Amino acid sequence: MSATRTLHLAAEIGGPPRYDAASYVALARLAEHGALDFVTLRDSFERPGPDALAVLARVAPATERVGLVPTVTTTHTEPFHLAEAVATLDWVSHGRAGWLVDVSTTTAQARLFGRRPAAPASALWREAGEVADVAARLWDSREDGAGNRNTTLSTGRFIDRDTLHHVDFRGATFAVRGPSTVPRPPQGHPVTVVDIVTGRTPELTETAARYADVVLIRAGRAEEAAALRGRLRARAAETGRDPGTLRVLAALTLDCHDGELPREPGRVYGRHTAAGAAGAHYRGGPVDLADLITRWHGDEAVDGFHLTPVEPHRDLERLVNGTVAVLQHRGLFRTFHPGGTLREHLGLARPANRYTTAGGAS
């Protein structure tokens, strides 16, 4: 494996609904102890339990380094409020926020809001791309350092209007003028994560290629993962992006219940199978998982892994104290977070403000 390629690891801390902050804090701290890039907390309008973004806002002051990435559904949600909420999470976490983009396709979820009927996934993922676009514009609509301050005593003005920029964005289903009421986030743009599920619409892949910083993919074999990573990076380049700014992580459901299997001739260790839309599953012990991660990353099939524990406390503990420890011992994974922000963990630069770069005019 190339010494210059950084291995990225992340984990889900959801599971059965829990209504106490302590359990989420404990899992996030465990991931932080293992120097994982970030944790996700999945959510939907049909899922019982507390709001993922609000939960991670509570986790933020109880952690110091690990990135915090809640699911944020763009359907039925006002883009302006979404961008403000994610920017706020970036502020309260001191630059560790991201958001896992999702859409809501069911009639039952549409009825919760009563504002519009359910729509096809293709249309909703096009809309999600527009939301990701306007969110980035809103985060840029206040220049770095712009805020409520008395800039000129003679005018009595409490804000420097030259540092604010109207977005004036009109999408297929919404329009946003801006500017944001929240100052520009510490990361410039919080990290955008998109989960690619096999068999979903081309619009989902297009949104990921254009707007995602991190893409989660589902693949049963390293060759499949490498091919999908290659297609994503190629499409990102076609949209004008630097494909080197796209991190592609293989999504695995993790079950370490059985531990390491006995070494017997002819036995396949660390069973890893594709499971359709549910994603790929790994069942085995921490050392075999470390071998799998080493092999896939060394072959440049992926940039890292996002692991979803079957049993959050048990499997995350075995991931951190077992697999991660093995990878660290082999010199393949860091022993501490080298920076303070999620972008720094991922090796991504802080984006320049588009309005400042363009000379100020919106």
Results as ranks from 00 to 15, higher is better:
Asp255Asn: 14
Thr201Lys: 04
Thr207Arg: 02
Cys256Trp: 00
Gly266Arg: 11
Leu232Arg: 02
Thr239Cys: 10
Ala236His: 05
Asp255Gln: 02
Arg235Met: 11
Arg218Trp: 01
Ala226Val: 07
Glu260Gly: 04
Asp258Phe: 06
Ala237Arg: 13
Asp255Lys: 07
Ala234Val: 02
Leu232Asn: 05
Arg235Glu: 15
Leu249Ala: 05
Arg231Pro: 01
Pro202His: 09
Ala208Gln: 07
Val268Tyr: 07
Ile217Leu: 03
Val214Trp: 02
Pro243Ile: 13
Ala209Ile: 13
Thr207Ser: 13
Val214Tyr: 04
Tyr269Pro: 05
Thr239Pro: 00
Asp255Tyr: 04
Val215Gln: 03
Arg263Gln: 12
Thr239Ser: 13
His257Cys: 03
Ala208His: 03
Arg241Val: 08
Arg231Ile: 01
Tyr269Trp: 07
Asp255Ser: 12
Arg241Leu: 08
Ala226Ser: 13
Leu261Val: 10
Tyr269Val: 12
Glu238Ala: 15
Ala209Met: 10
Glu224Tyr: 11
Glu260Met: 02
Ile217Ala: 03
Arg210Val: 14
Ala227Ser: 14
Arg247Cys: 02
Ala237Met: 02
Glu223Cys: 04
Glu224Ser: 13
Leu249Val: 07
Thr239Phe: 15
Leu252Ala: 11
Gly220Phe: 08
Asp258Leu: 12
Asp213Tyr: 04
Asp242Leu: 01
Thr245Asn: 07
Cys256Gln: 14
Gly240Leu: 05
Leu254Glu: 05
Thr245Gln: 12
Asp213Phe: 09
Ala236Tyr: 03
Glu206Met: 06
Arg210Ile: 06
Arg241His: 09
Glu238Ile: 00
Thr207Leu: 08
Arg241Ala: 11
Ala225Arg: 01
Val268Ser: 12
His257Gln: 14
Val268Cys: 01
Gly266Met: 10
Asp213Thr: 10
Val248Pro: 01
Pro265Asp: 07
Cys256Asp: 04
Glu224Leu: 11
Glu224Gly: 08
Arg210Glu: 13
Tyr269Asn: 11
Ala222His: 13
Glu260Ser: 09
Arg210Tyr: 02
Glu264Ala: 15
Thr205Gly: 12
Asp258Ile: 11
Ala208Ile: 13
Glu224Gln: 15
Thr205Met: 13
Ile217Arg: 00
Arg267Phe: 04
Tyr211Lys: 05
Leu252Phe: 10
Val268Lys: 10
Ala222Lys: 13
Ala234His: 13
Leu228Tyr: 12
Ala251Arg: 15
Glu203Ile: 02
Ala234Asp: 15
Leu249Asn: 06
Leu216Glu: 09
Leu249Cys: 05
Val215Lys: 03
Ala208Asp: 07
Val248Asn: 01
Leu204Ser: 02
Gly259Trp: 08
Glu260Ile: 06
Gly240Arg: 05
Cys256Glu: 12
Glu264Phe: 13
Glu224Asn: 08
Val215Ala: 11
Glu224Cys: 09
Leu252Pro: 00
Ala250Asp: 14
Leu232Tyr: 02
Arg210Gly: 08
Asp242Trp: 01
Glu203Gln: 14
Leu254Asn: 09
